[in-house]
């Protein structure tokens, strides 16, 4: 069964399952130890390498094999971890496990345009004002009407020496926002890339004095980006296309990497995101099988009471009209054939002499006859008339 359709075939909103979107993805890291090799880290030696691939390995990693930065001696000590997710996801959480003492200051950012621009999701710091110029987050969440990047306490060091940075997108979002009805929340959750900035190591006594920093390196593993492949409610799964790009397996007459538009012939009403209550499927234009293309007309859609705005293009089989529902000039509807029959429209075939024109009644097929002429195609003299020799007046009254 297809989760995007009811048993009876009616469309319903559907979403892909929750996954770790970072799993197996390449992590771009600004700094990794081992080049040149040191006693503790050698990127050319598998046993002593600590590459960023260890951050997103399937099945996780262990603290003995973590990504590690170089040993840093001077400020700024920024190290950047960037994970391109391959396509838009709707985030649920982001977490990173540190293999050594967690940093005292971390910024979490997202991109919605594959890394061209970045916006903050949240900050973690023991000194929010000093590091990020903003107050520590209140326990009530954001005060504003929409989501915002708040500054949370820095990750705590665990007894084993490591620590966990965990961010839930709900942490930055005011309670009560409904994903179906809030474009602001939809925007807040959407990301194509995640970036983690490690900006300050934790020091003994948590000093604010950057000059006091002693040699330090960052070390982490298990970078998880929990989220759902973003398909706008029109797909229940994502797949790899022939070029290896992750795309939604779109239903409901939609297409695009995120099912973000209607398929070419499915433009009888505007594209909309599906909700839990309404699938908002894209509808095929009604062209009675005589056209392969159509376009959307907003004015017609409004005039129809927001029910139908599709206009068929290039009606074939001698049909015409918005829905290819009548016959073009010079043709008439064959009452014995269905409207979607290829031969639903017959040529008028008006008699070249008996008819006064070539265009017949599109419903009855009756050609316009000259005086004294009768018949559907005007090919006979009417009772009381007989054929003359004049093509201008082919039938004259019988003497």
């Amino acid at each position: 069964t297809d989760p995007c359709y009811e048993e009876g075939g009616a469309p319903r909103g559907c979403i892909p399952g929750l996954v770790n979107a970072a799993l197996g993805r390449e992590v771009l890291v600004s700094n990794t130890c081992g080049r040149p090799a040191t006693w503790a880290c050698d990127s050319s030696d598998l046993m002593r390498a600590h590459p960023p691939a260890l951050l997103t390995l399937a099945g996780g990693s262990t603290s003995s094999v973590c990504w590690r930065s170089e040993v840093l001696h001077r400020v700024p000590l920024n190290v950047t971890l960037t994970v391109p997710l391959g396509k838009a996801f709707e985030l649920v959480f982001v977490s990173l496990r540190f293999c050594s003492a967690p940093p005292a200051s971390v910024a979490l950012l997202k991109s919605q345009d594959h890394g061209h621009s970045w916006t903050p999701l949240g900050f973690f710091s023991s000194h929010c004002s000093l590091d990020y110029g903003r107050p520590p987050a209140s326990s009530d969440g954001p005060a504003g009407p929409g989501p915002e990047a708040l500054c949370f306490p820095a990750p705590q060091a665990h007894s084993d020496g490591g620590g966990l940075m965990a961010f839930s997108v709900q942490d930055g979002s005011p309670p009560g926002l409904d994903l179906d009805s809030s474009p602001v929340l939809q925007d807040w959750l959407t990301a194509t890339d995640i970036r983690i900035l490690l900006t300050r190591p934790s020091m003994p006594g948590d000093t604010k004095d950057l000059d006091a920093i002693v040699p330090y390196s960052y070390s982490a593993t298990e970078l998880q980006v929990g989220g759902r492949c973003k398909c706008n409610g029109h797909a229940s799964r994502c797949l790899l296309d022939t070029q290896g790009h992750l795309i939604c397996d779109c239903r409901h007459g939609t297409e695009g990497p995120d099912c973000g538009r209607c398929k070419p012939f499915y433009c009888d009403r505007p594209w909309q995101r599906a909700t839990a209550r309404e699938a908002h499927a894209c509808l095929a234009c009604s062209c009675n099988g005589h056209a392969r293309r159509c376009r959307f007309n907003m004015e017609l859609y409004r005039l129809s009471g927001r029910r139908s705005g599709g206009v068929c293009l290039n009606c074939r089989h001698n049909t015409a009209g918005r829905h290819c529902h009548y016959c073009r000039e010079g043709f008439y509807r064959d009452p014995d054939r269905a409207l979607n029959d290829r031969r639903a429209c017959r040529a008028c075939d008006c008699h070249p002499v008996g008819a006064a024109g070539k265009t017949c009644n599109q419903t009855t097929g009756q050609c316009p006859c000259k005086d004294g002429v009768t018949g559907l195609t005007c090919n006979r003299c009417a009772p009381g008339f007989q054929q003359s020799r004049s093509p201008v007046a082919p039938c004259v009254k019988t003497p």
Binding site: N379, R380, Q387, P391, C395
Partner: peptide, 23 residues
Amino acid sequence: DVMPTLDMALFDWTDYEDLKPEV
């Protein structure tokens, strides 16, 4: 009674050559 169809051969096109349909 069904009248016979118009017989094209009976028409005299002498003065109406420009109206004569192509057959």
